[in-house]
Amino acid sequence: MMTETTPQVHEEILAYYSRGEEDARLREGGASAGRLEFWRTQDVLRRLLPPTPARVLDVGGGSGIHAAWLAEDGYEVDLVDPVPLHVEQASRLPGVTARLGDARDLAAADAAYDVVLLLGPLYHLHERADRVRALAEARRVAGPGGPVVAATINRFAQLHDLLRKERYFEAVHRERTDATLRDGRHRFYEGGLFTRAYFARPDEVVTEFGEAGLAVDGQYGVEGAAWLMGGVEDWLDDPERREAVLAASRHVESEPSLLGVSGHLLTVGGRRR
């Protein structure tokens, strides 16, 4: 049984997520194309995960945006997150248990889960050693053959997003974006558009999986190029067009030359044999 741990999280990250806006971003979309990210993540996971019932550890699971549908599908879901508001929100979900915790120091026993998801923690770990440590912890608590699925923000996501929104023409945003392109580190700025984060290259994630003792089985661009198209949010309101967008995204989701175009990337792997 998991026990509560004291997560080590930067105060600016805690403040950002304590605003409670992440759940609405993924459910309601808008300028962020969050609904496309949500539906595509769900689409990919449903093809990667073992059949129900299976035990899922949702590390950094936020308010339970994915834990909710996983539980509805029949999975046993435990959620760990460093933000108290998220834990409070997720604990209200049927079939989901939620605890405070740190991805780098999980309270779970070895091989306790059939699936381990890290759909957020790697976003906010600037240091490579911390990212590898989080992946190694996921490997430790995943059972034999159990997949570890990690989400990352792609290195060029901010550049593409600000061009799409015409914010890259503003000198202050261009300077900050160009700095992030050099080393992947998004710094926190008062009044900025996002909090402290790390934006990774797809091949970098593969290397870090290997350092954590995980063999990569596949990588999936979540939004593909669709998120850069101005009408995508309107398309998603039409069920037929939404299915067409999802189908189109599947065609290119693992095309190596297009992985970095997507805003987010899912990498799946398992214990090295």
Rank of each mutant, 00 (worst) to 15 (best):
L118N: 10
Y75H: 13
A129F: 02
F156S: 00
A134N: 12
V141R: 03
E127H: 15
E76I: 02
D114M: 00
A157K: 07
P144R: 07
V80W: 12
L159S: 05
D73C: 08
V116N: 04
G145S: 01
E137A: 05
R131F: 10
A129N: 10
A90G: 05
Q89P: 00
A98R: 09
V83M: 08
R99V: 09
L135W: 09
A134I: 04
D73R: 13
S91P: 15
A111V: 00
V115Y: 05
G74W: 08
L122V: 07
H86Y: 04
Y75M: 02
A98E: 05
P121W: 07
T97D: 15
A107C: 03
D110F: 03
L119M: 13
E127P: 12
P121G: 06
V149P: 13
A129Y: 04
L106Q: 13
A150R: 13
A151W: 02
F156V: 03
A129C: 09
H86N: 15
A142D: 00
A151Q: 14
L79K: 15
G145N: 01
G101H: 03
V116D: 01
I153S: 03
L163Y: 12
F156Y: 04
E166C: 05
A108P: 02
D81I: 08
G120L: 06
A98Y: 01
A112W: 10
L93E: 14
G74F: 10
A112Y: 10
D102G: 10
H160L: 12
E72H: 11
L117D: 12
V87G: 06
A136K: 13
E166K: 15
Y75T: 01
V116W: 10
K165D: 15
V87L: 09
D161W: 13
V80N: 11
T152W: 00
D110K: 10
A108G: 08
I153Q: 07
V116C: 03
L162T: 14
E127Y: 08
D114R: 00
V141L: 04
D161Q: 13
L118V: 08
D102N: 07
I153E: 03
E166Y: 10
D102Q: 07
D78C: 11
L162G: 00
A103D: 10
D81F: 11
E72M: 10
L125W: 12
G120Q: 07
E127T: 09
A136C: 07
L93Q: 14
T97F: 10
L163K: 07
L122E: 06
Y113C: 02
L79V: 14
P121Y: 08
Y123F: 13
Y113A: 03
I153W: 02
A142K: 01
E88M: 11
G74V: 04
Q89S: 03
G95V: 08
P147D: 05
L135M: 08
V132R: 06
R155L: 09
E72Q: 15
D161T: 13
D102E: 05
L93T: 14
H126F: 14
V115L: 03
H86T: 01
